[in-house]
Computed example of a mutant assay.
Amino acid sequence: MVQIAWLGKKSPFCGNVSYGLSTTKALRSRGHQTHFIHFDTPHSPERNGISLLANDPDVSLPYLVKSQVYTIPSPRAQRELRDSLERLKPDLVHASLTLSPLDFRLPELCQQLSVPLVATFHPAFDSGLRNLTAGTQQLTYQLYAPALARYDRVIVFSQLQADVLIKLGVPAKRLAVIPNGVDTDLWSPASPGTASLLQRSVRERLGKERIFLYMGRLATEKNVEALLRAWRLVSPEGCRLVVVGDGPLSSTFQNQFNDPQILWWGYEPDLETRVALLQCAEVFLLPSLVEGLSLALLEAMATGTACVATDAGADGEVLAGGAGIVMKTQEVTTQLRTLLPVLRDQPVLTAALGRGARKRALERYTLSGNIDAIERLYEELIHSNSLATLHSQAKST
């Protein structure tokens, strides 16, 4: 079994957090020893350079600023990270990149410690550069490309994402395409005729209407305003839009779109409740301008919910060929004005789309398949590192 030092995020909640928690949990279930190193202690003079969790299997690093998008570590964080790695002596370091200055220093640090280094690169993208947000994300890719070229391997979620990095100078041999995966036993359709107490409670709060659902951050790149405008224009009778999530635009949207047909659920921290919400929903809507590979989309697919998403990032690739409806990132409101009445009037269509989505998730996007691929990558890198160490020792004697 492999001893892994996992550098990632546990808060605030975002796709990176979901990825790190679900992946490390699955790795531990297979017998791997995983130490989670994360920014979880606000910088304080009282620390005096001492890691507060020095004897814990998980390690807390100090930070100055932490958000869903980026992290600014304290000046002591790099030293504490090095001390932790020297103490843990992992077989491999896996960094689920947190958009932090430490991301750029990790290759040199792990090289000094002779430890293989894997990254998972999360930032959303739109290879078509069709809007300002996509252009901003492209700058992130340009900034990171030289550093990623120094990692032993960089996990990306699609070949489209790999192609973007290759064009920016990251060698293809450094990249590993391993799509996100979800637990398709947990994220599954509700059993016909049986509803748990939680499902009944969620359904009662949702009301009797047919449920169209958005689940994610309320931020510019998610383009939720385009969905809200389309909903207000169409006002599909007998249907309700449920918005699950929070973010910088939450108050603005709630004030601007005060509509009884829209339920502002807010941030939902409970995993089982999020499952129940998707099980109650007939249609999942994701109008993003940029994406990587949306975990929320894969979760909706696995629950058998009909999915409508833009072709930002890899989401269009995921739904292509009958697993859902794919929109362009431009003029989303116009496209939804056409689609919403069709989805309202064709429940047979939404049921068929839900079955297709579930089938695609089972075929390509299971968590077990994701972990299988990560394990093979670990084995390859650890084996190569062992050979290199033996070769170095032989040369020195």
Rank of each mutant, 00 (worst) to 15 (best):
L263V: 13
E282Y: 01
W265G: 03
K222F: 05
Q279V: 09
R232F: 11
N223P: 08
V234I: 03
V224C: 00
L263N: 07
A276K: 01
P287L: 09
Y214Q: 01
E237I: 02
M215D: 07
F284S: 04
E272W: 05
L271E: 14
P260S: 04
P269K: 12
E237T: 13
F253E: 14
T220D: 14
L277H: 03
I211S: 02
T252V: 14
N223F: 02
R240E: 06
V224W: 10
C280H: 13
N258K: 12
G245L: 05
L213K: 10
L227S: 04
P287V: 04
L286I: 12
A281Q: 05
S251N: 07
L286R: 01
L228G: 02
A230R: 04
L249V: 02
L286N: 01
F284K: 09
L271G: 02
E268Y: 12
L278A: 14
W265K: 01
Y214N: 07
I262R: 03
N255Y: 06
D270F: 15
L289R: 05
R274F: 03
I211E: 08
N255Q: 14
V224K: 03
S250H: 15
L233Q: 09
C239D: 14
V234Y: 06
Q254R: 11
A219M: 01
A219N: 11
V275Y: 00
R240V: 00
K222W: 00
L213C: 03
M215K: 00
T252Y: 13
I262Q: 04
I211M: 05
L228T: 02
L271R: 10
A219H: 00
E237F: 07
L285S: 11
L285D: 07
P269G: 11
W265N: 05
G238P: 01
W264S: 11
D246I: 09
S250F: 15
G247N: 07
F284Y: 15
E268H: 12
P287F: 00
I211C: 04
E225I: 07
Q261N: 05
V224Y: 02
L249R: 14
Q254F: 12
L278S: 08
L263A: 06
E282S: 10
Q279P: 11
V243N: 02
V242M: 03
P269L: 04
K222E: 03
T252H: 14
F253H: 13
Y267A: 15
E225F: 03
L289E: 08
A226L: 00
E272G: 01
L241D: 02
C280E: 11
L227F: 11
P236L: 08
P236C: 10
V243F: 07
W231T: 04
L278Y: 06
W231Y: 13
F257E: 08
F212H: 06
C239Y: 05
D270Y: 09
A281L: 04
V275D: 09
G216H: 11
V275K: 09
F253Y: 14
R240L: 09
D270E: 15
A219R: 02
D270G: 03
V244E: 00
L286Q: 07
K222I: 08
Q261P: 01
C239K: 14
V243E: 06
E225W: 01
L213Y: 05
S250P: 06
N258P: 03
D259F: 02
Q279K: 07
L233I: 12
M215G: 04
L249Q: 09
